[in-house]
Design a protein around this nucleic acid. Structure first.
Length: 214
DNA sequence: ATCCCGAGGG
DNA sequence: CCCTCTGGAT
């Protein structure tokens, strides 16, 4: 496993990310806090492109938890069938929508505890909503960030909560808010799981990945 | 540790 | 064919 990069190298790495993309954006389609929450919940073990394909038509009509209740679980299941794990996801989104209507006035709560108490919403999903909607420096650790953290030395750790803490503790404060999307986009397009594109990697000189090419 | 699960890429 | 994709609940 890679060693944690020191402060100097961490600063250099994120400075490079910022030079390439000053305002990194997520790629999950959404129109408000509710649709963001649903989109992120649907994105488990699925690609953003795959989720967007299903949520485009869905969110055009359903952009509020009450409308989701009106739509019904059968129709939702059909609408998201092309996404993986669709039965569990449809069931969870229906339950979650009911809770939002009955307990939160149809709004998406802004506390981690409230978010994580929703069915189908774990720590990662809660962190993404906290980061993207409520603009908190929450560090969601997904498959990309776990892989990259360990390959590069940006945030090494055997499990996700160790990686999450490594990011909180070692990413310089000025980069905390955008760290999530910089790392996601790097993982999606450069440091891919299968054949990482080391030849075009902007942080190659700091990377500790033992199997890196070039 | 296992299950859920379709789409896309190699 | 096999692997991967912004995980969560049991």
């Amino acid at each position: 496993m890679a060693r944690q990069l020191n402060y100097h190298d961490m600063h250099a790495v994120f400075t490079r990310f910022r030079e390439i993309e000053p305002e990194p954006q997520g790629e999950l389609h959404h129109v408000n806090a509710y649709t963001l929450l649903v989109a992120v919940a649907l994105s488990a073990q699925a690609t953003d492109a795959g989720v967007n394909k299903a949520t485009g038509p869905l969110f055009a009509r359903v952009d509020h938890p009450q409308k989701m209740l009106d739509l019904g679980e059968e129709a939702l299941t059909e609408a998201i069938r092309t996404i993986g794990l669709y039965r569990n996801k449809a069931r969870n989104v229906m339950k979650l929508s009911r809770i939002l209507v009955e307990q939160y006035g149809g709004e998406v709560p802004s506390s981690r505890a409230a978010l994580q108490s929703l069915p189908g919403v774990g720590r990662k999903t809660a962190n993404v909503v906290l980061n993207m909607w409520f603009r908190q420096p929450a560090q969601a650790v997904d498959t990309h960030i776990f892989r990259i953290g360990n390959r590069t030395g940006i945030a090494p750790g055997r499990d996700v909560d160790v990686v999450e803490r490594a990011i909180e503790d070692n990413v310089p404060a000025e980069f905390q808010l955008h760290a999530h999307h910089w790392l996601i986009l790097h993982g999606r397009y450069i440091c891919t799981a299968r054949k990482p594109r080391c030849a075009v990697c902007p942080i190659f000189e700091w990377c500790q990945y033992e199997e890196k090419t070039q």
